[in-house]
Simulated assay, not measured.
Amino acid sequence: MRNKADRLQHTMRVEGTARIKIMPDLAVINVGIMTENEQVNAAQQENAVRSNQVIQTLKNAGISDNDIQTISYTVQPKYDYVEGASVFKGYRVEHILEVTIRDIQKIGEVYDAAVSSGANVISSLQFKLSNEDVYYKKALQLALENAKEKAKALGQQMGTAVLPIPINIKEEGSPVLFQAKAAPFMAQEQAATPIQRREVEIEAKIAATFQY
Protein backbone atom coordinates (compact mmCIF):
# COMPACT_ATOMS: atom_id res chain seq x y z
CA MET A 1 0.00 0.00 0.00
CA ARG A 2 1.38 3.40 -0.96
CA ASN A 3 1.94 5.99 1.77
CA LYS A 4 0.87 9.63 1.49
CA ALA A 5 4.25 10.77 0.15
CA ASP A 6 4.04 8.26 -2.67
CA ARG A 7 0.55 9.34 -3.61
CA LEU A 8 1.61 13.00 -3.92
CA GLN A 9 4.15 12.05 -6.57
CA HIS A 10 1.36 11.24 -9.04
CA THR A 11 0.16 14.09 -11.25
CA MET A 12 -2.29 14.70 -14.06
CA ARG A 13 -2.38 17.53 -16.59
CA VAL A 14 -5.75 18.79 -17.80
CA GLU A 15 -6.84 21.69 -19.97
CA GLY A 16 -9.51 24.20 -19.03
CA THR A 17 -11.45 26.39 -21.42
CA ALA A 18 -13.99 29.16 -20.92
CA ARG A 19 -15.86 31.62 -23.10
CA ILE A 20 -17.66 34.76 -21.99
CA LYS A 21 -20.29 36.53 -24.09
CA ILE A 22 -20.34 40.33 -23.92
CA MET A 23 -22.04 43.11 -25.83
CA PRO A 24 -19.29 45.08 -27.61
CA ASP A 25 -18.68 48.77 -26.99
CA LEU A 26 -16.40 49.44 -29.99
CA ALA A 27 -16.73 48.99 -33.73
CA VAL A 28 -13.98 48.96 -36.33
CA ILE A 29 -14.83 49.45 -39.99
CA ASN A 30 -12.66 49.50 -43.10
CA VAL A 31 -13.72 52.06 -45.67
CA GLY A 32 -12.01 52.51 -49.00
CA ILE A 33 -11.68 54.98 -51.83
CA MET A 34 -11.16 53.38 -55.25
CA THR A 35 -10.44 55.44 -58.37
CA GLU A 36 -9.60 54.48 -61.94
CA ASN A 37 -8.04 56.39 -64.81
CA GLU A 38 -5.96 55.76 -67.90
CA GLN A 39 -3.25 57.96 -66.38
CA VAL A 40 -1.75 56.85 -63.08
CA ASN A 41 -1.20 60.43 -61.87
CA ALA A 42 -4.81 61.34 -62.54
CA ALA A 43 -6.06 58.26 -60.67
CA GLN A 44 -3.82 59.09 -57.69
CA GLN A 45 -4.81 62.75 -57.62
CA GLU A 46 -8.52 61.95 -57.70
CA ASN A 47 -8.01 59.37 -54.98
CA ALA A 48 -6.13 61.87 -52.80
CA VAL A 49 -8.92 64.45 -53.12
CA ARG A 50 -11.65 61.95 -52.30
CA SER A 51 -9.63 60.41 -49.46
CA ASN A 52 -9.15 63.82 -47.85
CA GLN A 53 -12.88 64.45 -48.17
CA VAL A 54 -13.70 61.16 -46.46
CA ILE A 55 -11.19 61.75 -43.67
CA GLN A 56 -12.50 65.25 -43.00
CA THR A 57 -16.08 63.98 -42.98
CA LEU A 58 -15.14 61.28 -40.47
CA LYS A 59 -13.54 63.91 -38.24
CA ASN A 60 -16.67 66.05 -38.50
CA ALA A 61 -18.64 62.99 -37.36
CA GLY A 62 -16.61 62.90 -34.15
CA ILE A 63 -13.88 60.40 -35.11
CA SER A 64 -10.45 61.43 -33.79
CA ASP A 65 -7.23 61.43 -35.83
CA ASN A 66 -5.89 58.46 -33.87
CA ASP A 67 -8.97 56.43 -34.79
CA ILE A 68 -8.47 56.90 -38.55
CA GLN A 69 -5.55 54.86 -39.89
CA THR A 70 -4.42 53.94 -43.39
CA ILE A 71 -4.02 50.15 -43.57
CA SER A 72 -3.32 49.84 -47.31
CA TYR A 73 -2.66 51.96 -50.39
CA THR A 74 -2.31 50.19 -53.73
CA VAL A 75 -1.75 51.20 -57.35
CA GLN A 76 -2.39 48.49 -59.92
CA PRO A 77 -2.63 48.39 -63.71
CA LYS A 78 -5.93 47.22 -65.24
CA TYR A 79 -6.22 44.82 -68.15
CA ASP A 80 -9.06 43.42 -70.21
CA TYR A 81 -8.64 40.11 -71.97
CA VAL A 82 -9.86 40.10 -75.55
CA GLU A 83 -9.52 36.97 -77.67
CA GLY A 84 -6.77 35.67 -75.41
CA ALA A 85 -4.76 38.88 -75.43
CA SER A 86 -4.44 41.36 -72.56
CA VAL A 87 -5.35 44.96 -73.33
CA PHE A 88 -4.15 47.71 -71.01
CA LYS A 89 -7.10 49.75 -69.66
CA GLY A 90 -5.48 52.11 -67.19
CA TYR A 91 -4.81 52.14 -63.45
CA ARG A 92 -6.74 51.43 -60.28
CA VAL A 93 -5.82 53.18 -57.03
CA GLU A 94 -7.28 52.00 -53.73
CA HIS A 95 -6.84 53.62 -50.32
CA ILE A 96 -8.25 51.66 -47.35
CA LEU A 97 -8.84 53.32 -43.98
CA GLU A 98 -9.43 51.56 -40.67
CA VAL A 99 -11.88 53.57 -38.57
CA THR A 100 -12.54 52.93 -34.89
CA ILE A 101 -15.98 54.06 -33.71
CA ARG A 102 -16.15 54.55 -29.94
CA ASP A 103 -19.78 55.65 -29.89
CA ILE A 104 -21.22 52.39 -31.12
CA GLN A 105 -24.65 53.94 -31.70
CA LYS A 106 -23.14 55.95 -34.57
CA ILE A 107 -21.99 53.06 -36.77
CA GLY A 108 -24.71 53.62 -39.35
CA GLU A 109 -24.14 57.38 -39.36
CA VAL A 110 -20.42 56.94 -39.90
CA TYR A 111 -21.01 54.51 -42.76
CA ASP A 112 -23.40 56.91 -44.43
CA ALA A 113 -21.09 59.89 -43.91
CA ALA A 114 -18.12 58.04 -45.40
CA VAL A 115 -20.10 56.89 -48.44
CA SER A 116 -21.66 60.30 -49.08
CA SER A 117 -18.23 61.94 -49.04
CA GLY A 118 -16.60 59.58 -51.52
CA ALA A 119 -15.93 56.14 -50.01
CA ASN A 120 -17.00 53.43 -52.42
CA VAL A 121 -15.60 50.27 -50.81
CA ILE A 122 -16.61 48.83 -47.43
CA SER A 123 -14.45 45.81 -46.67
CA SER A 124 -15.25 44.80 -43.09
CA LEU A 125 -17.05 45.48 -39.83
CA GLN A 126 -15.77 44.16 -36.50
CA PHE A 127 -17.22 44.54 -33.02
CA LYS A 128 -14.66 44.77 -30.21
CA LEU A 129 -14.21 45.51 -26.51
CA SER A 130 -12.40 48.52 -25.09
CA ASN A 131 -11.77 46.66 -21.80
CA GLU A 132 -10.99 43.25 -23.26
CA ASP A 133 -8.37 42.51 -20.57
CA VAL A 134 -10.96 42.70 -17.77
CA TYR A 135 -13.14 40.06 -19.41
CA TYR A 136 -10.17 37.93 -20.36
CA LYS A 137 -9.06 37.72 -16.72
CA LYS A 138 -12.56 36.60 -15.78
CA ALA A 139 -12.46 34.00 -18.56
CA LEU A 140 -9.11 32.75 -17.20
CA GLN A 141 -10.68 32.25 -13.77
CA LEU A 142 -13.52 30.27 -15.32
CA ALA A 143 -11.04 28.23 -17.37
CA LEU A 144 -9.25 27.27 -14.15
CA GLU A 145 -12.56 26.20 -12.60
CA ASN A 146 -13.21 24.12 -15.69
CA ALA A 147 -9.82 22.43 -15.30
CA LYS A 148 -10.53 21.71 -11.61
CA GLU A 149 -13.87 20.11 -12.49
CA LYS A 150 -12.19 17.91 -15.10
CA ALA A 151 -9.47 16.83 -12.67
CA LYS A 152 -12.04 16.01 -10.00
CA ALA A 153 -14.10 13.98 -12.48
CA LEU A 154 -11.02 12.06 -13.60
CA GLY A 155 -10.10 11.38 -9.99
CA GLN A 156 -13.57 9.99 -9.30
CA GLN A 157 -13.29 7.78 -12.36
CA MET A 158 -9.96 6.41 -11.08
CA GLY A 159 -11.24 6.06 -7.53
CA THR A 160 -8.76 8.50 -6.00
CA ALA A 161 -8.88 11.98 -4.52
CA VAL A 162 -7.31 14.83 -6.51
CA LEU A 163 -5.90 17.79 -4.60
CA PRO A 164 -7.96 20.86 -5.60
CA ILE A 165 -5.02 23.29 -5.78
CA PRO A 166 -2.94 22.77 -8.95
CA ILE A 167 0.83 22.68 -8.63
CA ASN A 168 1.30 24.32 -12.03
CA ILE A 169 -0.87 26.53 -14.26
CA LYS A 170 0.06 27.52 -17.80
CA GLU A 171 -1.80 29.98 -19.97
CA GLU A 172 -2.41 28.46 -23.39
CA GLY A 173 -2.05 31.05 -26.14
CA SER A 174 -3.36 34.60 -26.22
CA PRO A 175 -6.89 35.92 -25.68
CA VAL A 176 -9.21 34.86 -28.49
CA LEU A 177 -12.02 37.28 -29.35
CA PHE A 178 -14.73 35.84 -31.58
CA GLN A 179 -16.03 38.87 -33.45
CA ALA A 180 -19.16 39.54 -35.44
CA LYS A 181 -18.12 40.49 -38.96
CA ALA A 182 -19.89 41.84 -42.01
CA ALA A 183 -19.05 40.29 -45.35
CA PRO A 184 -17.16 42.57 -47.79
CA PHE A 185 -19.36 44.55 -50.16
CA MET A 186 -19.36 47.61 -52.37
CA ALA A 187 -20.94 50.54 -50.61
CA GLN A 188 -23.96 52.32 -52.05
CA GLU A 189 -25.45 55.58 -50.89
CA GLN A 190 -28.45 55.13 -48.67
CA ALA A 191 -29.93 56.86 -45.65
CA ALA A 192 -29.70 55.61 -42.05
CA THR A 193 -27.90 52.35 -42.64
CA PRO A 194 -29.14 49.95 -39.91
CA ILE A 195 -26.30 48.20 -38.07
CA GLN A 196 -27.28 45.81 -35.28
CA ARG A 197 -24.81 44.90 -32.55
CA ARG A 198 -24.08 41.25 -31.88
CA GLU A 199 -22.47 39.68 -28.84
CA VAL A 200 -18.78 38.91 -29.01
CA GLU A 201 -17.16 36.00 -27.19
CA ILE A 202 -13.78 36.05 -25.48
CA GLU A 203 -12.05 32.72 -24.91
CA ALA A 204 -9.32 31.71 -22.48
CA LYS A 205 -7.45 28.42 -22.23
CA ILE A 206 -5.17 27.09 -19.49
CA ALA A 207 -3.35 23.87 -18.72
CA ALA A 208 -3.14 22.84 -15.05
CA THR A 209 -1.26 20.07 -13.30
CA PHE A 210 -2.88 18.42 -10.26
CA GLN A 211 -1.56 15.95 -7.70
CA TYR A 212 -3.40 12.84 -6.63
Rank of each mutant, 00 (worst) to 15 (best):
V54C: 11
I71Y: 05
I122A: 14
V54N: 01
T193L: 01
R102C: 12
A48S: 09
N131E: 15
F88C: 08
P24H: 07
Y79W: 15
K148Y: 06
D80H: 04
S174M: 01
S174N: 04
K152V: 10
E172H: 02
G173V: 08
M1S: 15
S72F: 00
L140P: 05
I96V: 03
I63C: 07
V49K: 14
I104Q: 08
Q56L: 11
E189A: 09
A208K: 06
A182G: 12
K21Y: 10
V75A: 03
R50K: 12
D80C: 06
Y79S: 04
L26F: 03
E189D: 07
E201K: 06
A139K: 12
N47E: 01
V93W: 05
L125H: 09
G155E: 14
M158I: 06
G90V: 05
S124F: 15
V54T: 06
Q76N: 15
K138Y: 13
D133K: 14
Y111V: 05
P24W: 14
M34L: 14
Y91N: 11
D112A: 07
L144D: 13
I101L: 08
Q179N: 07
T11L: 02
A48P: 04
P77F: 05
I101H: 08
Q141W: 05
S116T: 09
Y136M: 12
T193N: 09
S174Y: 00
A183F: 08
V176L: 09
K59D: 11
E98M: 08
R7S: 13
T70D: 07
K205T: 06
V200A: 07
G159M: 01
V82F: 03
G173H: 06
G62R: 02
M158R: 14
Q9I: 09
N41F: 09
A153H: 03
I195C: 10
M158Y: 15
T160D: 07
E38K: 13
G159W: 01
Q45R: 02
S72N: 13
R92P: 03
S64D: 11
G16P: 04
Q56S: 11
S86D: 00
R102I: 04
S123Y: 04
Q69N: 14
D112M: 06
Q44E: 13
Q141Y: 08
E203S: 02
T209H: 03
